[in-house]
Design a protein around this nucleic acid. Structure first.
Lengths: 184, 184
DNA sequence: GTCTATAAGAGGATAGAC
DNA sequence: GTCTATCCTCTTATAGAC
């Protein structure tokens, strides 16, 4: 799973080959196919794994009284960016690819994605009510934006081209996301 | 080129097959290879074409005295989102793939990308000086963020899932980009 | 559960006629 | 410039022994 997540993060689903995964794990490809029915199933398992981690983080944050809903959303976004820079955030396909279809019929994946969306949705509503999150945006728009930013290519590009440390870089990307490009 | 741009936009480079392009154009695959040396060259030509359009837009905006630098950046972003929703914005690969390497040695592509970046960079500096664009962000971060938003998957997802018209949807995405998710 | 070997097919690219 | 036919490599997936 760790190998798959890393390869999925760096190359994406289509460019990741099962041979590569097998080589990285150190077993034969046929052995891998004894555990996973297909390449899609392999990727789906990796996606489920990262969703589990996300759900665990959300559960921890829910018990935290020192942060309000807005801060919690930001904490989740920060974790996503950190995970992405660590090469552990599989980049999911936007609309294309066979993977998308395979994931959408995978109960384990869909159920967890819905659960995560529900939890985040509650925080979005709360943060809009409290006035910290923009009320001009439909909750749907906020949710999809957060999902998209979790796979944002910007941190990777900045790290590759730049002389900034990861900490600084993540704060800037978080700022573009929550504060926007315009001055405040 | 139009076919390639559309296919590149919907499926991405890796999932787009030369057979598909040929079929879409209505000629044999071998005929296509008489005009373009490789699949990479085909995609590069499409990328150059969209960069040309972008540069033309920038040139037009430069002559416009009714908008300041900040507004011009926003206009470019709006055009990018419209083009993307029209299925004419090829989605470039972030860091992975053979395409990236092929593009980076393609003089026609690199020269135009640098020119575009220079033009946008001037507006970014000006907009920061005038105080409309955040001074807390390095110009580099702003530029990469704008490029990334031009290929943002959010508008496509929102359109697929939603009952909003394109106009409204683009304004929301522009808002998340320039104003951020946080309330102002 | 792991392996070697191989099937099956997709897809990039080319040969060579017209 | 366009076509048909073909090559060849890469990749997913399976057969079957140990």
């Amino acid at each position: 799973m760790a190998s798959v997540n890393r390869l999925l993060a760096t190359k994406g689903f289509d460019l990741m080959t099962v041979d590569e995964v097998a080589a990285d794990v150190g077993i034969a490809k046929a052995s891998l196919y004894k555990h996973f029915a297909s390449k899609e199933a392999l990727a789906a398992a990796a996606m489920v794994r990262i969703l589990e981690v996300a759900l665990a983080l959300v559960a921890t944050l829910q018990a935290d009284n020192t942060q309000d809903a807005f801060d919690k959303l930001k904490s989740v976004a920060r974790w996503a960016l950190q995970t992405q820079l660590a090469g552990e955030m599989p980049s999911l396909p936007a609309q294309n690819s066979t993977l998308r279809n395979a994931l959408m019929v995978d109960r384990g994946y869909v159920d967890r994605l819905i659960e995560l969306s529900d939890r985040l949705g509650e925080w979005i509503s709360a943060a809009q009510s409290s006035g910290r999150l923009s009320r001009a945006l439909p909750p749907e728009v906020v949710l999809y934006t957060l999902y998209a930013r979790a796979c944002d290519p910007v941190p990777g590009v900045l790290r590759a081209g730049g002389s900034y440390d990861d900490e600084q870089l993540i704060e800037w990307v978080l700022s573009t996301c929550f504060d926007g490009l315009a001055a405040r």
